[in-house]
Write a protein that binds this DNA or RNA. Structure first.
Length: 605
DNA sequence: GACGGAACAG
DNA sequence: CTGTTCCGTC
């Protein structure tokens, strides 16, 4: 299963971002390092070693030379290169392994998360051949906090927790450079990613290819049954991916599957749990009136949410990332992820679970569902060139572009339909992260403590989950703490992912597979009531949000000036970050439900 | 060797 | 912005 060309992964060219971001125009050092790391031929000069994500530069000068060659900087030397590397510390892309010469460690949380979605993580393809040892022991996987100023730098929108965010954001903007210099790896990428795609795709692959990273792993997974859902290999199934791969490839065996492996503990809590969902009364027709489980109501209800989300929770940037993604065909609603096929047990009393049903037939394997991607809200230079250039070529690339809102025409969709699905989103995430640092930490700790089982020693098993360090922003643990959490093969992770830091007595029941067992109906109901509560909270939250913002941004002119480019307020008040856990949980559920519904509703597409 | 400030380049 | 180049410090 390795990719034909198999040099592992490559970064899509959208990552290049030729036009903007001067600094990212070319390959970035970390990409380059990764590139070397995955090629056997360079194992003499640089190789994975030690902890997960840790690598040692065996021949500094050679690496420098190679780097210099790549960048056309003949004068490059290790001293300079290392300076560049050091800059990554603050970005939390890398950190130094103290005490070991020439040894650094990647923060795969960000890198992988951000970059791998476009790669075939699902099949382990596209993963570096050589990879760092699987996590060994720590339960933590966080980066030492960067300075607050760094992390919360105004440039980062104040909300950026860290690299993860910044990288992701950059990605969204297309500025993250890809690892290739544009000459060497695109093909790889296509082969690796696109190539396999054609065959039978695993859902995750499809998702990844199609969606924005965050969207893909979080919302999508949740929407599609989360762990163990579609097409996932049976639990216990092999952990695939490169055994050595540092990238937590999807391969979580079993239910923890994509989610577990892909998501980082932190991340897991962010998107869903943080989902700052704040209902918008005006947009929620049903709120306050009546609610029934009849499909129409549900639909409206959810649509209202969508709207609400759209209007209040997504910033323009978010749109850029999730340009009206319409998920027409569900693959499989989250409700029945693990029991889908045999749904009879507890088939959720969903009114229109029909779509569900039919899919059940085809079940397991996922059809890569198609997304309708629509043009981003607006503005932004058209990066048609890139889109067109790759458009048809590789599915993955195409998807990537699509994800970036570049493929608007491909699916000539009329009026932009706004179906913002899984809201998990990006921006909100970020905001949340910042304001919720303390909670994040708690969550993380929680996660680490409870959910994360100590990584298996390098057993060549699946790499594990990538943690989202970005979310870790503030805390500081020293590097020893920075261990990769191993994705428990089975998925102890999931619970937290789905349940979002499920509190012992409170989270939704989780099935063994990590799937929620609550019937859809029930969930909706729950959501319903929560929404009502939330409404009440709405204002307060907003206020809080502002407060927080004020504190952080201080003089920054807030949003009074709603973006001039009518793209919608980039910072929506409701994006609130500080949503109480309960709300967050609810939000995530909403997301799930929404996704489901939306999927069903669009089944026709 | 590692770190990080500072100036500067693209 | 992402580096690159220098350089002083530990």
């Amino acid at each position: 299963m390795k990719t034909p060309g198999d040099t592992g992964f490559a970064f899509p060219d959208w990552a290049y971002k030729p036009e903007s971001s001067p600094g990212s125009r070319q390959i970035q050092l970390w990409c380059f390092i990764l590139e070397l790391l995955r090629k056997e031929e360079y194992h003499e000069v640089i190789a994975w070693q030690g902890d997960y994500g840790e690598f040692v530069i065996k021949d500094p000068e050679e690496v420098a030379r190679l780097w210099g060659a790549r960048k056309c900087k003949p004068q490059m030397n290790y001293d300079k290169l290392s300076r560049a590397l050091r800059y990554y510390y603050n970005k939390r892309i890398l950190h130094k392994t103290k005490g070991k010469r020439f040894t650094y460690k990647f923060n795969f949380n960000k890198l992988v998360l951000v970059n791998y979605p476009f790669i075939d993580m699902g099949s382990g393809r596209g993963v570096p051949q050589s990879a760092p040892p699987v996590p060994t022991g720590g339960s933590h996987f966080r980066f030492p906090p960067s300075t607050p100023s760094e992390v919360l730098s105004p440039n980062e929108d104040l909300r950026s927790p860290g690299v993860f965010s910044s990288v992701a954001r950059r990605m969204g903007r297309g500025s993250v450079s890809d690892c290739s210099d544009g000459t060497s790896t695109n093909s790889e990428l296509e082969e690796g990613v696109g190539g396999e795609d054609r065959g039978g795709v695993g859902p995750e692959r499809a998702f990844r290819g199609l969606l924005h990273p965050r969207l893909s792993h979080d919302s999508l997974f949740r929407a599609y049954g989360g762990p163990g859902g579609l097409g996932r290999p049976p639990p216990g199934h092999r952990v695939h991916g490169d055994p050595m791969s540092p990238f937590p490839v999807s391969p979580l065996p079993g239910p923890g599957g994509l989610l577990g492996s892909t998501l980082s503990p932190a991340l897991s809590m962010t998107p869903g749990s943080h989902l700052p969902y704040t209902p918008s009364p005006s947009l929620s027709p049903m709120l306050g009136s009546h609610f029934s489980f009849n499909p129409d109501d549900m639909k409206r209800y959810l649509q209202a949410h969508h709207q609400s989300v759209y209007n209040y929770h997504l910033s323009p940037r978010a749109f850029f990332h999730y340009p009206n993604i319409v998920v027409p065909q569900p693959h499989r609603p989250s409700a029945a992820p693990d029991k889908p096929i045999t749904a009879h047990h507890h088939a959720p009393p969903m009114p229109h679970s029909h779509s569900l049903h039919h899919h059940q037939g085809e079940e397991q394997h996922p059809s890569p569902f198609k997304f309708k991607l629509q043009p981003p809200p607006l503005g932004r230079k058209q990066r048609d060139c890139s889109a067109s250039s790759t458009g048809g070529s590789s599915s993955s690339l195409g998807s990537s572009y699509a994800a970036l809102g570049l493929l608007s025409n491909s699916s000539s969709v009329g009026p932009p339909k706004i179906k913002v699905e899984p809201v998990s989103d990006i921006e909100s995430d970020e905001e949340v992260e910042v304001t919720d640092i303390s909670e994040e930490d708690e969550l993380l700790d929680d996660y680490e403590g409870d959910v994360f089982t100590p990584p298996h020693p390098t057993n060549g098993t699946a790499p594990t989950a990538i943690t989202n360090l970005g979310a870790i922003a503030a805390d500081d643990l020293d590097e020893d703490v920075f261990k990769t959490p191993a994705a428990p093969p089975m998925g102890p992770l999931t619970p937290s992912l789905l349940g979002l830091k499920s509190e012992p007595g409170q989270g939704p029941p989780i099935s063994p597979g990590g799937t929620l067992c609550i019937p859809l109906k029930l969930r909706f109901k729950r959501r319903w009531s929560e929404d009502q509560k939330m409404e009440a909270y709405g204002e307060r939250e907003e206020a809080e949000d502002k407060k927080v913002r004020a504190e952080k941004e201080v003089v920054e002119e807030p949003a009074r000036r709603e973006s001039e480019n009518g793209e919608g307020p980039r910072r929506s008040p409701s994006m609130s970050l500080g949503a109480p856990p309960a709300q967050r949980r609810a939000s995530s559920e909403l997301q799930r439900a929404t996704a489901q519904l939306s999927l069903e509703n669009h089944g026709a597409c």
